[in-house]
Amino acid sequence: MIAHAIFFYTFSIIAVVSAIMVTASKNTVHSVFFLILDFISISCLFIMIGAEFLGMIMLIVYVGAVAVLFLFVVMMLNVAQQKNQWFVGQQSSRHIPIGLVISTLIFFEIIIVIGGWKFKPEIFDINNSISQASISNTHSLGKILYTDYIHVFQISGMILLVAMVGAIVLTFRQRSGVKRQSYIKQISRERAEGVEVLEVQSNKGVKLDD
């Protein structure tokens, strides 16, 4: 139990500190690196409560793909040198009330959820199949996701697909005057199309482009 507690507090302290550092660090690229550290420690916490599938998916999706693209964009935009002057700047202080309102709201939501879960567990109809010890985490998640919540699952997939198509449609531009290579055209070229053997008469030469 002691080892469990030590690991839990280590990971949660790392998670909280790195979450604070995401907003507080002055270099944007450092912020993304702290975000990655945050994701990793949260996935460790997931694994510690026995949700190994969620933890691994967190690593694969957020750390392995989403954060890489974040880093990619942040590096490409060259905002690395731009100072994050949240705590000192005059400009950003106008946004502090909005941030405060939102964070207070989120705080109270969390209080309500955790408090309710703690003192009135019966109002949360937890499906028991997710916490069965006999089958593995992945199996029980799949069983719930593909039976009770299949419509929600399909709809969320459709939303993602629509978002992807929308993003492509919005950014795709058919530019004219661009030379495109078609490798099928290139490799299906016959010798006769490319090379012509001519009888060259002396002192007359060959006329090339006609």
């Binding site: 690196f33 990655i36 190994e52 599938f53 691994m56 998916i57 690593l59 694969i60 750390v63 392995g64 793909a65 890489v68 880093l71 590096m75 593995s136 985490n137 992945t138």
Partner: peptide, 21 residues
């Protein structure tokens, strides 16, 4: 572990960070 192949996949997908950093 139960999710061995996911672990392998996750770790190999983290490999890009060394290069980016």
């Amino acid at each position: 572990i139960n999710v061995g192949i996911l672990y392998l996949f996750a770790v190999s997908s983290l490999g890009v960070y060394g290069i980016i950093m």
